[in-house]
């Protein structure tokens, strides 16, 4: 315990105070609903994912291919010029091994989350996604080559999760 506790003891709240109603809270749970328009660029991108393809937009001024695509180039601030298909292979930019689930419990099997730089577009473009078919966490390396593992065609919905995960190659 720090010396400062003597001077700044804070204010303890006991579970008794909470249970007896001495200290009150008001519970509220909001159920908000949205239906976001995916827009010109992302709509095409999602439609292509359903076909098992990854598409980007090219800016002819800075020569970058933007994946996921957008109708504007944020560097040049101009409208992008053309649709370009890119490969479904790439490189791990960085990764983390996640051990805690959404309910704060420890995961039985850790999840491998990575930033994937997809081959074809300009450096730094690609996806935040899962890594899969990992035998040991020690085999994952920054710079490791990976490839998309797609869901079967009839299970694809036009979502980034139409790619199940990226596996080492």
């Amino acid at each position: 315990m720090s010396e400062k506790v003597k001077f700044f003891p804070g204010r303890e709240i006991s579970s008794k105070a909470m249970e007896s109603g001495e200290v009150l809270t008001k519970y509220y749970s909001a159920d908000l609903n949205y239906s976001w328009s995916t827009g010109i660029a992302v709509t095409r991108f999602l439609q292509e994912l359903k076909q098992g393809k990854i598409i980007g937009r090219k800016c002819n001024k800075c020569d970058r291919v933007l994946v996921p695509p957008r109708i504007f180039c944020e560097d040049c601030f101009r409208t992008t010029d053309e649709w370009v298909y890119v490969k479904d292979t790439g490189v791990v930019n960085t990764y983390s091994i996640a051990h805690v689930g959404t309910d704060a419990s420890r995961l039985k099997e850790p999840m491998y989350i990575a930033v994937i730089n997809v081959d074809g577009p300009t450096k730094g473009m690609g996806f935040l996604h899962y890594l899969g078919e990992i035998k040991s966490e020690h085999e994952i390396k920054v710079g490791m080559k990976v490839q998309a593992v797609w869901k079967p065609e009839n299970e694809r919905t036009g979502s980034i999760l139409d790619i199940r995960y990226f596996k080492p190659i």
Binding site: G39, T43, F77
Partner: peptide, 27 residues
């Protein structure tokens, strides 16, 4: 309703008009 266009694309459209109107290079 602007279903086919995302909010980012709406913003881009407005921004392009404004910068051209002002005659500036936003970047």
């Amino acid at each position: 309703v602007t279903s086919g266009i995302s909010y980012k694309e709406l913003m881009y459209e407005a921004a392009v008009h404004a910068y051209s109107d002002a005659g500036i290079d936003v970047r």
